[in-house]
Amino acid sequence: MYSKFKIHHIYLLQIFLVFIVVILLSFKPNKEQILKYNSNVYLKNIPEPSDIVYDSQSNHFYIVSDHGKLFECANDGKIIRKAQKEGLDFEGVEVKDSFIYVSDETPRKVYQYRKSDLSLVKIFSVKCGGALNKAYESITYNYTKNCFVMISQQPAIIVEYDEQFNEISRKKFNIGRDISAARWYNGKFYIISSKDACLYVCEATKYDVQQYYKINVINAEGLAFDANGKMLITSDDLQRLYFFNQLPNIKQ
């Protein structure tokens, strides 16, 4: 015979189990399109690669590391040269004209390097008041609006800057739990959420999401498109570079 107290527990257990069943039954899974990478390489000498960008002039890539290092790399990820001036926590990289721009997340700075010799030209300060390591993990140039765009990781705020990194505007990006990479490419704006393992394809003016894909990369941190429009993603924790085919046509 059950005591009063055991009956209490059986009731509570039953309530708990019914609660779980009700919540699970209310869940309708979405059919999500999953993009799978075709190949990958281990970036042996680039610790925690956090972003990558393609330079059409040299046909090389620039990769930055969480350890505050900037590398120029060949198409297979092999290091060609490295910038002497290091930062603290490089998380985003962009190429524009003769310069490379790097986001140093922790101290909220943007390093401007000269592409020809990887020498440091200038350091800009940018404002981001969130948590220490939840600031700008991305930097890209939006050629649709002619401005730099940096997105804070969490909360995700899209901030537009002029070429002297004076703030132009900011707006919340309400989709995705965090933002770890962004890239303007061919009139579209591509954003990666590492936590959601998701690639969002946005129009490049208001950053409204037009399409999204799940990606099978753990800790996706960097995003680039090569000369053929093929997508590359870096993973910092796994220290790998993933190669994808071209994205499927985007539904308008």
Partner: peptide, 12 residues
């Protein structure tokens, strides 16, 4: 639309 409100982050 407000799930990532900045009030839930640290101050740097």
């Amino acid at each position: 639309f407000q799930r990532s409100d900045s009030s839930t982050s640290g101050f740097t």
